[in-house]
Design a binder for these strands. Structure first.
Lengths: 156, 156
DNA sequence: TATTGTTATACTCTATAACTATA
DNA sequence: TATAGTTATAGAGTATAACAATA
């Protein structure tokens, strides 16, 4: 890809995969965050919690964390903020009072229904650069590298 | 890919491209950050500045920013920390004293040369999941989506 | 004892803007 | 006046750990 022969002692940042990927992912995230962060004033954690509850109502904090790849602490902060904003409601699970069951409020559901089509439209616009076949291919390539990355992470 | 038919009113987070990409990119970054963040105690900004100067010596702060996709402010903080740690040196450009020319110190060069092979090895391990052809394909697919993401970002 | 959820702490990242010095 | 770089500030992300309530 370049004027320079890659060797073991040197690294050209713009050709380094983790760097390219981080820049790419940030730009994709920013394109979506402009929506939920702009007019709707949601943080990324809050957006993910809203998306989790829009998809499956009645989740506990831990289930929201699993759904959204957030730490339980981030979920706790996000649910506090969303409660305060009146976008969600919650109540204790009668059968195990350690669990809090969360769901969207009427206001939250209405925001969700306004936001989702906008967010999907941006995703679809970005993916319109690819054919259906290419999208499947991309998914598969990503999954294979992801598995290797998780291996490395676990080895420490 | 799913038990649920995608529609316009609902969104399943784990099937949403920007979310999947963010999780993927974070895991790839973490696999590399374990190296420079662990034994070498570098932040991500510091690692990028080190990589910039290891590749091209004598850069100004602005040139480092352009090279590394960092804000000039992050560069300023990173160079301060790297100076304090004795990993870089700098001096005024004689022809324009607004510019500071940065380079790795002997200690910084030695750290760079120790770090780069480790970092490359992790990249190569992750990419070993793909054939050469697939890597080229992945690069191309990413670039096409990236261009769309930048369009959206600029529109606001 | 283990689990759910909250709170505390500390460091990093991101974004904006004011400020200085040089040109 | 424009540019290079520093500093200040505030909000958000990340990681660890202590803690209370419940099981």
């Amino acid at each position: 890809m370049g004027e320079r022969k890659p060797d073991d002692k040197q690294l050209v940042l713009r050709e380094f995969f983790p760097y390219r990927l981080a820049v790419f992912s940030n730009d994709v995230s920013r394109a979506v965050a402009q929506l939920y962060g702009g007019r709707f004033q949601l943080s990324r954690s809050e957006w993910r919690v809203l998306a989790a509850l829009g998809d499956s109502s009645g989740l506990s904090a831990k289930e929201i964390a699993d759904y959204s790849t957030l730490e339980k602490m981030q979920v706790s902060r996000a649910t506090s903020a969303l409660l305060k904003a009146g976008l969600i409601e919650r109540e204790e699970d009668e059968r195990d009072r350690r669990h809090l069951r969360h769901r969207l409020s009427k206001k939250g559901r209405s925001l969700y229904q306004e936001l989702i089509p906008l967010v999907r439209a941006r995703q679809d616009y970005m993916l319109s650069a690819l054919s259906d076949e290419e999208r499947t291919q991309l998914d598969e390539l990503i999954e294979r590298i992801h598995a290797k990355a998780l291996e490395l992470q676990q080895w420490g």
